[in-house]
Amino acid sequence: MHKNEVVQLSSNLSKGNLKKIGNRNRGLILSILSVVLFIVVWEVVSRNEWIDPLFISSPLAIAQAAVIMVQEPTFWQNMRVSGYEFGVGFLLAMVIGIPVGVFSGWNKTFNALVNPFISGLYVTPKVTLLPVIIIAFGIGPGSKIVIVFLMAFFPIVMNAQKAMHTLDQNLIKAARTFTANELQIFKMIALPSTVPFLLTGIRLGIGQGLIAVVVGELFASSAGIGFQLTNDGQNLQTDRMFVGVFVITLTGVILTTLLGIVEKHFSSWKPEKN
């Protein structure tokens, strides 16, 4: 009986579609189950003190702490500070990184001039520069903006360069036969080709930038989510500390989701995966 229904269904829908819908739902359900299970196990482990709650807190305690914290003015003050530091640093990384990457990928002379620094600094752990950045820019937002910029800059530059190095030569040849000049080739082929690469660079840059904000604030600061997180940790308020961690995670998830929407808009011409 049941089997018959399935057979009828698949004759109505195409087999591939049916499988796709089924897989998507199944995946979503499994993901939710997995997260719920993790939270339950965490709560149980913490309640029974199989692991000291001082180290791992508990989901319930964290939720309670979150409710209290969102009512504290200092929490929002810290959010503003961190948001400002990340926002300005990241914007600078894009505004400077995209043109530098694109032009160094396009122009061999410019590339020869800047590439030693880009390749060299790319592999340098930027965090090691923090002590000197703090000496130079102080413990305020300035030093955080600089470290966010430095960490987000390189993924963006490298991906922009890569885009220019992988331009489709057939398209360029076609453009030339239609009497396109260099500027037209740049605007009509090179720039559109960079979009998917730039989005990849920005995605990586977001992750790096968020790390930079927190590490910068952990290192030396007087405000910000990283600052709050450090204080709460030192006061052994693990629940409050975890709220800080979740805020950062959530920010990353929201930003990459927004980027995903932008990506979808720009790449409607790309063949769908699967």
Partner: peptide
Amino acid sequence: FQTPSLFPW
């Protein structure tokens, strides 16, 4: 052209 060389976007 031998390859279509169309602009994918």
